[in-house]
Nucleic acid binder design. Structure first.
Length: 335
DNA sequence: AATTATCTCAACCGCTCGTAT
DNA sequence: GATACGAGCGGTTGAGATAAT
């Protein structure tokens, strides 16, 4: 199926999907000789591929620490936050998601996030969309992480932390060259250092903190978390489906390398203590629900929470409402 | 059951940057 | 300093899978 490119009389290069034999050859060669220069590696290994192709295949697929499977809620949150900070710096973002490749993150962004921007009829780089992400989706992701963490069904958490623990070493969050995934101390001198493994919610700041000390910019304590979705019985928000339609299993969502303890999770206390009722909030977008729409009534009558996987409905109504308010605000400011 | 539309993701392309000569 | 080369990055493509009609 692969096509070939004629380089000269007797040297042609394969393109297209890799065969099992090619994979095997590349893996064996790297196991014996290391990565080295990709062009010479391709030649020496006898692969009729460009060095680029070999490198890509190795980094994105064959590398033993490549993490496959669904993007977890925590990873989604990280991607959103880091993208808001760095933009399309996929490689840089990928450095903070152990085992995930820049290609995978890029694909996720294009297929999920951009799709939602399209559905909301706004540009992915627009302020409205960015505000929607920051004030609605990200807090809600945090809420769902929290809700799923405290859910009784998660009794298996402790036993299911193996997925990415195998990525210790080269794949620890924060540095591709790091050799440890143990709890990272930060410059915070407070003895109440609640940082939890690799991805933490800092009680003092309300921020998620990466092991190398980078705090995710947003203070989630002040973020609006709609309380009506904060119950275990609302399982649809706790893992049946993610906000962008990604397939996220409720187990893996919570049990991968983040290792958030089930009980006495200070990060959760942080949220619980600091959550602002949506009717009280004027600065967060959900506060807009006071402005005319009887959100509680809608919720109580289950107008859009009935049946099946309701998270997409939730997102759309919520997001559209928020965007509408954003536009109204813009219009008012222009008057 | 067949066809069409949509989605996903592996792979490629072209560009930039860093390093060696 | 100029040039060549290789590595890496972000953007894009297209084949296969899946969903919808």
């Amino acid at each position: 199926m692969s096509s070939t490119i004629q380089i000269d009389e007797d040297m042609d290069l394969r393109r297209g999907p890799w065969t099992v034999d090619e994979d095997f050859t590349l893996i064996n060669y790297i196991a014996n000789h290391g990565e080295g220069r990709w062009n010479s590696l391709a030649r020496c290994a006898g692969l009729k591929r460009t060095g680029k192709s070999c490198r890509l295949r190795w980094l994105n697929y064959l590398r033993p620490d490549v993490r496959r499977g669904n993007i977890t809620l925590q990873e989604q949150l990280l991607i959103l936050e880091l993208h808001s900070r760095w933009g399309n710096r996929w490689s840089k973002i990928a450095q903070h998601l152990p085992g995930r490749t820049d290609n995978e993150i890029k694909n996720y962004w294009r297929t999920r996030v951009q799709k939602h921007a399209k559905q909301l009829k706004c540009d992915v780089n627009s302020k409205q969309f960015k505000d929607t992400m920051r004030y609605l989706w990200m807090p809600r992701l945090v809420e769902r992480i929290q809700a799923a963490t405290v859910a009784p069904a998660n009794t298996s958490i402790a036993a299911t932390t193996t997925t990415t623990t195998a990525t210790t070493g080269a794949c620890s969050i924060g540095s591709s060259t790091s050799t440890t995934t143990t709890t990272t101390t930060t410059t915070n001198n407070n003895s109440n250092n609640y940082h939890i493994n690799n991805n933490n919610l800092d009680v003092q700041t309300g921020q998620m903190v990466l092991p190398h000390g980078v705090a995710i910019g947003q203070d989630f304590r002040g973020a609006q978390v709609t309380p009506s979705y904060n119950t275990p019985e609302n399982s649809s928000t706790a893992g049946s489906s993610d906000s962008f339609g990604a397939q996220v299993s409720p187990v893996s969502d919570l049990t991968d390398y983040y290792n958030i303890p089930v009980n006495n999770n200070p990060s959760l206390e942080c949220f619980q203590a600091s959550q602002v009722g949506y009717q009280d909030s004027l600065t967060s977008p959900s506060g807009y629900f006071n402005n005319g729409l009887d959100f509680q009534a809608m919720e109580q009558s289950n107008q859009w929470l009935d049946g099946g996987d309701t998270s997409d409905n939730l997102w759309n109504v919520d997001d559209l409402w928020f965007l509408q308010q954003q536009l109204n605000n813009n219009n008012n400011n222009n008057i």
